[in-house]
Structures are given as C-alpha cells and as structure tokens.
Amino acid sequence: MSLWNKIMESLELKLLTSPETLKRQVRGAYCGDLLSDVLAHVAPGDLWVTIHRHRNVVAVSTLTNVSGVVITGDRYPDRETLEVAEREAIPLLVTKLNNFQASGKLYQIFSEYSQEM
C-alpha cells in the first residue's frame, strides 16, 4: 500500500481537490495553526495539519511546497479556497479527527514507515 493510501485510510481523509493534485511525495508532517510559525518551520514535502480553511492556507502551502493540507475537525473550505488550491495544485483533504488525533496517527505511520526502511 502506498504511503498516501495508508495516510488517507488511517486519518479517514477525503480529498476535495482533483486526484491530480496528489502528485507530491509525503516526507513528513507538521501541525500548526499559526501561519507565521508554519511558514518558518514546515519542511518541503510535509503534510500540513491545521484547523484553518481559508485562502491563506493555500498561499502558505504554495510558498513552502508542502505535499498537502489536512483540514481537521470536519471543517470544509469555501469554494474560493478550493479554486485557488486546484489552480496551485495543492491537495486539500478533510478529516473528522481533530489536530491531536490526526497528528498522532501520522506520527505512528511515520514511525513504522521509517522502521520498514
């Protein structure tokens, strides 16, 4: 099972953008809701876990080259945000889990993943 599939299944993710946006490799993850902090500390290829769902999330994602954004707490971005995400090819995913739960699952996946390698 590919890493993306594993993550999608474990976090019960729903992809809101087109499947073509899922083109980057996931290298790790970062969780944060303060955009300036994320901008400073997220690494390229990270999956970004956040509660935010507005347009600026896409702006930060584009600048930092994250592999995708997980919006937690069963919250959906508005149409405008989705349009920009599609245009900038940033995958937006939603989950019912909260930040803590989603990050915990990701931590587990990456711990196992690095042991396998």
Partner: peptide
C-alpha cells in the same frame, strides 16, 4: 483594532 493588512497571522 488595527492590523498590518498583509501580516500572515491576521485572520481574514
């Protein structure tokens, strides 16, 4: 309340 409009942490 006044914000620098382009600040990353200013909420929409």
């Amino acid at each position: 309340a006044g914000f620098p409009r382009d600040h990353m942490d200013r909420a929409p």
